[in-house]
Computed example of a mutant assay.
Amino acid sequence: MSYIPDRVTKEPGRSQDPYGGEELDVPTWQVQPGRYRLIAARACPWASRAIIVRRLLGLEYVISMGLAGPTHDERSWAFDLDPDRVDPVLGYERLEQAFLARFPDYSKGITVPTLVDVPSKQAVTNDFPSITHDFFFEWRDHHRPDAPDLWPDDCRDAMETVMDRVFSDVNDGVYRCGFAGSQEAYDEAYDRVWTAMDWLEDRLSHQRFLMGDRITEADVRLFTTLVRFDAVYHGHFKCNRNKLTEMTAIWGYARDLFQTPGFGETVDFDQIKRHYYVVHEDINPNGIVPKGPDPAGWHAPHGRDRL
C-alpha cells in the first residue's frame, strides 16, 4: 500500500522521518488549529491509533474529526453515520472525494486515517505512522497541560525496536494469517503471531506497560490489535491458539489500557465486528456478524497498578 507522504509540521518546509529523524524530501503543510480534519473509523485499527492519540494529547479542540461508517466498498469509506450520509464539515459522502479533489487521477488506496485540509477539502496525508508521530512532536504547542509523553527520550531506541516487532508480528501478523493464500503462508504467519504474543506475555508479566511504568505510543499501537483479538482475529483470521482472555498478563494489560481515559471510550465493538465480518466477503461470504464475545469483561478489575 502506498500513502500520500505529506507531513503537517510546525515549521514550514521541514519534515523528518518518524523513525530515523533525518530530513525527508516530502511536501509539508503548516500546523494551524482548526485547519485540518481527521477522518477516521472506529472499525479500523490503524485509524484507531490516531483517534486515541488525538484524545490522549487533548487535540480535539484544534483538529476536528469525522467518522466513517464501519463498512465500505471497493471505492471508499463512506460517511453513512452522519445525517443525510454527508460529512457536516467537508460536505462529502465519501472519503474518496477528498483524494480526488487533490489528485483527480488518484488510483491508490483510499484509507483511514486521513488528514484533510478543510479550506481546500483536499487530502493532506494518509500515512498513518506519521500522523500520530506528528500529533505528538509537531502539535506540542496545542497539547493539554498533562498530556502523556508518548515518545520519551530515555527509551526511544528501545521503543522503536518494540514497535517494529509489534507491527510486523502482531499488528500486521494477524492480517497475514487472515489473508494467507496457502497453508504454508498461514502456518508461518500463525507461528510468528504466537511467538510474539508469548514474548509480550513474558514482557508484561513484570512491567505494567511495554516500556515500563508509563504509557507510550508503543502501547497505543499494540492496544488497537489486542482490543480486536477475541472479537475478530481469533476466529475470523484463524489466530486461534488461545483467546486473549486466556493470557494472564496480556489480558490484564489490555484491560488496564481499555480503562484508561482516551482508550476504551473510543472503542465500538459492534462497528469493529461489522467491518471485518461484512467487508471481508472472501473470508465470510455469508456476511454473518457474531453476537459475542461479551464485552463486559473489559471493565473487570485488572490489578496492574501493583506493577
Results as ranks from 00 to 15, higher is better:
127 D>E: 15
68 A>S: 13
24 L>V: 02
245 T>I: 11
87 D>K: 07
176 R>I: 03
229 F>P: 06
152 P>L: 04
6 D>M: 04
240 N>T: 09
301 P>N: 13
243 K>L: 15
223 F>I: 01
283 I>E: 00
103 F>A: 04
63 I>M: 11
197 M>Q: 01
47 A>E: 03
219 D>G: 10
217 E>W: 03
141 D>F: 09
159 M>G: 05
215 I>T: 12
64 S>Q: 10
188 E>V: 08
219 D>M: 09
120 S>N: 08
102 R>S: 01
242 N>W: 07
39 I>W: 01
8 V>N: 11
244 L>C: 09
43 A>K: 02
5 P>T: 11
197 M>F: 13
261 P>N: 06
281 E>C: 00
262 G>N: 08
48 S>E: 15
283 I>L: 15
89 V>E: 13
299 H>P: 01
1 M>C: 03
187 D>L: 13
292 G>F: 02
177 C>V: 08
255 R>D: 09
226 L>M: 15
22 E>A: 15
150 L>A: 09
94 R>H: 11
162 V>N: 02
46 W>G: 05
75 R>T: 15
261 P>K: 06
302 H>V: 04
201 E>N: 12
135 F>P: 00
2 S>A: 09
146 D>F: 08
55 R>S: 13
215 I>C: 07
259 Q>M: 13
284 N>R: 14
10 K>C: 05
185 A>I: 00
269 F>K: 03
132 T>V: 15
206 H>L: 08
57 L>R: 05
156 R>G: 06
222 L>C: 06
17 D>C: 12
246 E>Y: 04
163 M>L: 09
76 S>R: 01
113 P>G: 15
231 A>R: 04
216 T>L: 03
141 D>V: 02
52 I>M: 14
147 A>K: 04
159 M>A: 10
162 V>L: 10
158 A>S: 15
239 C>H: 03
20 G>R: 14
28 T>D: 00
108 K>T: 05
194 W>E: 01
103 F>S: 05
233 Y>S: 06
206 H>C: 10
56 L>H: 09
281 E>G: 02
303 G>K: 00
53 V>P: 03
167 F>I: 12
142 H>K: 01
10 K>R: 12
212 G>A: 14
161 T>D: 10
52 I>P: 02
21 G>M: 11
225 T>A: 07
106 Y>T: 05
144 R>T: 11
137 F>L: 14
254 A>R: 02
156 R>Y: 14
27 P>F: 05
254 A>L: 13
257 L>G: 06
123 A>C: 13
163 M>Q: 11
207 Q>I: 05
213 D>M: 11
196 A>Q: 15
118 V>K: 08
22 E>S: 09
248 T>K: 12
14 R>K: 15
56 L>V: 06
195 T>V: 13
178 G>R: 08
85 R>D: 10
81 L>P: 03
264 G>F: 06
141 D>E: 14
218 A>S: 15
4 I>K: 04
115 L>M: 13
66 G>Q: 08
108 K>Y: 07
27 P>E: 12
235 G>F: 03
147 A>T: 07
297 G>T: 09
116 V>F: 04
132 T>R: 06
59 L>Y: 06
74 E>C: 01
194 W>I: 04
2 S>L: 14
274 R>K: 10
25 D>M: 04
292 G>W: 04
59 L>C: 09
108 K>M: 10
95 L>N: 03
265 E>F: 13
289 V>Q: 06
54 R>N: 12
70 P>I: 07
